[in-house]
């Protein structure tokens, strides 16, 4: 105890901060500075999360007091094969998974190729980079208006320039192709920048050593480049997967969920059930949201463990 006291004293003498007389009692300063954010965080994030999980166990309709119904909503959407909500969950979640599986590889490989090409620094690479990033700045609804016209059967350029003319948005598998194309066009800029930074960080010594050993360009890419940027690859896989699980705008505005519900994603059903025309079935909607949320959380937990193992 004595030692501690004397230590404190020494610090007091040396540190200029403590020259100021210390205020007694409860310090209000922290509340003043972090209070506003804390309040917003509690009201618009923390409470809604708990409330959201709770109402998935109720028969809430957004208006009346929610009545606790136990696991009924989950039973209904997960196991009751006669229920329309069962069909919605399975179609919606299935299509959401399909979207993730179709888009994530493209959203990794294409920006990686672009970053690799930009890394060589050919003429105009600054301009190229700026252009690939540009669509990230645009809203989903503006982008979908442009692309639904691009895919238009009667006056769209895509059907005009390619001789075979499928009804892109109205038949499968073309509707999926269209969704993947617009998603890649819209959203690869961020990953590209991350890969560019990662490639800049790879030491040139490795490449020189590999050249001396007679390694070719492709060998170098797979044996040096990829392992060196492994962390960034993993990071982008996770954030891209999480982002794509939240697919909504593309399916809503480009394919309108069609043809015949083959691209209706879960978020569309959640929105419909809770906020659509007719009586709100917020309880069921919440149960669906919780299931989608669990899928997303599973991805972030995997990321957490993978990253921790690295350290």
């Amino acid at each position: 105890m004595d030692v501690k006291l004397s230590e404190n004293k020494r610090v007091d003498v040396l540190s200029p901060v403590s020259l100021k007389p210390r205020r007694k009692g409860f310090n209000v300063m922290p509340m003043v500075f972090i209070g506003p954010h804390m309040l917003l965080f509690a009201l618009f994030f923390l409470i809604p999360i708990f409330f959201g999980v709770y109402i998935s166990f109720t028969n809430w309709d957004l208006i009346n007091t929610p009545e606790f119904v136990g696991l009924q909503n989950y039973k209904e959407i997960l196991f009751n094969k006669e229920s329309t909500f069962y069909a919605q969950l399975h179609t919606g979640l299935g299509n959401t998974f399909k979207f993730v599986v179709f888009t994530v590889p493209a959203c990794i490989i294409i920006p990686l190729m672009l970053a690799a090409a930009l890394h060589v620094k050919p003429k105009g690479s600054k301009l190229f980079q700026a252009i690939f990033y540009l669509p990230v700045l645009f809203s989903i609804s503006a982008v979908m208006i442009i692309w639904s016209m691009m895919f238009n059967v009667s006056f769209g350029p895509i059907n005009h320039y390619f001789s075979s003319a499928p009804n892109w948005l109205g038949t499968q598998p073309y509707a999926w192709v269209a969704l993947v194309v617009v998603t890649v066009w819209w959203g690869i800029g961020g990953n590209m920048i991350i890969y560019q930074a990662a490639l800049n960080g790879v030491s040139k010594d490795y490449y020189e050593a590999a050249s001396l050993d007679g390694a070719g360009r492709i060998q170098k890419f797979f044996h040096i480049t990829l392992p060196s940027i492994k962390n960034q690859l993993l990071f982008t896989v996770v954030i891209t997967t999480i982002a794509q699980f939240n697919i909504y705008g593309q399916a809503l505005m480009l394919t309108k969920g069609g043809p015949s519900s083959s691209t209706t994603v879960l978020l569309m059903y959640i929105q419909q059930n809770a906020f659509g025309s007719g009586q709100s079935i917020a309880g069921i909607g919440s149960a669906m949201a919780v299931i989608l949320g669990l899928c997303i959380m599973a991805v972030s937990i995997i990321q957490f463990f993978l990253l921790r193992e690295k350290k």
């Binding site: 809604p48 409330f51 919780v290 989608l292």
Partner: peptide, 23 residues
Amino acid sequence: LFSFLLASMMFPAVVNLIPLYKI
């Protein structure tokens, strides 16, 4: 407190949507 804030980022915002509307 700050670690708690960081950990909260793992929670998916989609669960918030319906209750947030009510608030």
